[in-house]
Design a binder for these strands. Structure first.
Length: 569
RNA sequence: CGGGGCGUAGCUCAGGUGGCAGAGCGUCGGCUUUGGGAGCCGAAGGUCGGGGGUUCAAGUCCCCCCGCCCCGACCA
């Protein structure tokens, strides 16, 4: 491909709206174009990357026995009503009506449609197990699309679904997919951690997330370097710590003017945050709940949701705190509580001695409050966000907690969909049984973003060879120099002939301009044709490492071919 | 959905107290230049996000709406 004819237009300046590196670089280097919030066009160079990612996925899915098909984007509402998700999916579902007022949605995922398809063809245990998959555009009307391709409202996804006769067999399908995913991410040169995850709304009994560690990420996960445990932070349990052995000091009431935050109170009293009892008032449906947690801890609202069994809760407003407790936020405590307030004590509070506790009186705190003597614990629960250094639930070593991007997620669904949709098969005894399902997703467009997040520097992208839009760029530094241009042309033709995916920068631009563009767009190898052609030499440069080699003109293409093949192994 | 920021040329942005619509980059034409986003000359390019209002006069002040980004909540 000649760059002078290629639909690839870079920009010298960072786009104003982008912050995350992948968002910024994919826009600036001309891979994608934004249409509206969370909706992107994928331009030719970007599409070449996507197609390579897809082909890696296809190869591994096919190899594991899965069969590709293509479901519809337009889903009839009836199927979604069968599983109850027409209502429970909420505003995230793009809904529309046809000219006859029949209701549809744009598929955000395809459990309903695939289950409908399978129940029409699968009748016998002899037809199972079965794994079907597709690569298709998905629609989710996210409340907050973010970071370009990382969280879009329209995005590409590979979704696979497994169908088995029983839980045991389903587990084997699940394991098969786990191995396939492992191979896929390795081939994509994406560093991922497989983490235990919660099943969430989709339902089911077991789930793992494949998280690519990145600075800009939405998933928090913890992992243990000692025993290789890894899990999404929201499901890592934190036990009650042991009782502190500190001697109990006498209770004291202290004036603490204006100390509305833990930080301010800690500074004022010269007491570490972990010695402060933090109290948060929640509105849960129509009831009140006070959560007590150590001052150095944050509430993980996913854990709170799991404990409460509902997501219908929020923090109380300033007015509600005033009305109910007669105090201000920052001075909420456990004393003189109205009976109708339920309390939940986070495990972290257990055993802490000589705490600072508010008493629902603005500008006053107790210091040296002790359990048993000055107050009594209530119901304990695990509600705290996991932090770096918390103990591994398997072996007790300190965990590392990081952020990342969830690029894949697999679920053992059980009969969550087959049961309500009556997807049954007949077993060898002639009895009807529900098919046991699993589902397996990879965010294809998000994978492209994740690769950029993990492979870039301040100049631009460094595409790993297996997913690069072109493997080689031939860069002619001066198009008006006849010798240079003809050598560059020859090298370009030779590279194409030898099956190297090559882009030839034949644009009439200055050397600096072309180098800067080459770094930005990030093709893994380039052959620079410059002044050294006079000595019969050109320069090979490797984007990932910055290495370069001067080689004779006649050897350059073969040398690059070797390097590329090595990378792809 | 709550909080914050922004919307002016293709892109990045400047335009106190209301008074002729601007710069750099990019584009087009010409000259010159070619190992790290070159230089000079010239040109084209705008419903100032949209609507309403105040005013002799609105990019600027007021009201309503829309869009985009960031934080939080939410999220297979």
């Amino acid at each position: 491909m000649r760059w002078s004819r290629y639909f690839l237009y870079t920009s010298k300046e960072d786009p104003a709206e982008a912050e995350a590196p992948s968002h910024r670089l994919l826009l600036r280097a001309g891979f994608v174009k934004q249409v509206s919030a969370g909706v992107y066009e994928i331009l030719p160079a970007g599409w070449r990357v996507i197609r390579k990612i897809e082909s890696v996925i296809r190869k591994e899915m096919d190899r594991s026995g899965a069969q590709e098909l293509l479901l519809t984007v337009l889903n009839p509402a009836e199927l979604w009503k069968e599983t109850g998700r027409w209502d429970s999916y909420g505003d995230e579902l793009f809904r529309l009506k046809d000219r006859n007022s029949r209701e549809y949605c744009l598929g955000p995922t395809h459990e309903e449609e695939i289950t409908d398809l399978v129940r029409r063809f699968i009748r016998s245990y002899r037809q199972l197990p079965l794994i079907l998959y597709q690569i298709q555009v998905k629609f989710r009307d996210e409340k907050r699309p973010r970071f370009g391709l990382i969280r879009g409202r329209e995005f590409l996804m590979k979704d696979a679904y497994s169908f088995d006769t029983d839980e045991m067999s389903a587990m084997m399908s699940y394991e098969t997919m786990k191995f396939a995913y492992d191979r896929i991410f390795k081939k994509l040169r994406l560093n991922v951690v497989m983490a235990e995850a919660s099943v969430g709304n989709i339902g089911g009994s077991m789930s793992h997330e494949f998280i690519a560690p990145t600075e800009y990420g939405e998933a928090r996960f913890g992992y243990c370097e000692n025993c290789s445990y890894a899990a999404n932070a929201e499901i890592i349990p934190l036990p009650k710590p042991a009782q502190e052995s500190e001697e109990e000091r006498p209770l004291e009431k202290v004036k603490t003017p204006g100390t509305k935050t833990i930080e301010a109170l800690s500074d004022f009293l010269k007491v570490p945050p972990r010695k402060i009892l933090k109290a948060l008032l929640y509105r849960v449906k129509d009831e009140w709940l006070m959560v007590l947690i150590r001052g150095d801890r944050e509430v993980d609202e996913n854990k709170l949701e799991a404990v409460l069994g509902t997501d219908e809760f929020r923090l109380a407003t300033d007015e509600e705190v005033r009305e109910l407790l007669g105090t201000e936020k920052g001075f909420i405590g456990i004393f003189n509580l109205p009976d109708r307030i339920r309390t939940l004590w986070d495990n972290s509070v257990h055993g802490v001695k000589n705490m600072v506790v508010a008493l629902n009186e603005p500008d006053w705190h107790y210091v040296n409050a002790n359990p048993g003597r000055d107050f009594h614990y209530g119901e304990f629960a695990d509600l705290a966000q996991v932090a770096d250094g918390d103990p591994c639930p398997k072996c007790g070593s300190p965990l590392k907690v990081r952020t990342g991007l969830e690029v894949g997620h697999i679920f053992l669904l059980g009969t969550r969909y087959s049961e309500p949709m009556k997807a049954y098969y007949t077993d060898p005894e002639g009895k009807e049984r529900p098919i046991v399902m699993g589902c397996y997703g990879i965010g294809v467009s998000r994978v492209m973003a994740a690769i950029v997040e993990q492979n870039h520097d301040d100049k631009g992208i460094k595409w790993p060879t297996p997913v690069a839009p072109f493997e080689l760029e031939v860069l002619c530094l001066n198009m008006s120099d006849k010798d240079m241009a003809s050598v560059a042309e020859k090298i370009y033709m030779e590279a194409e002939e030898k099956g190297i995916e090559t882009i030839y920068d034949d644009r009439e631009e200055s050397a600096g301009f072309k180098f800067a563009d080459a770094d930005l767009v990030g093709f893994p190898y380039r052959i620079v044709v410059g002044k050294k052609v006079k000595e019969g030499k050109v320069e090979i440069q490797k984007r990932a490492t910055g290495e370069s080699w001067d080689v004779p003109v006649g050897e350059a293409v073969n040398r690059v071919k070797e390097l590329i093949e090595e990378d792809k192994r």
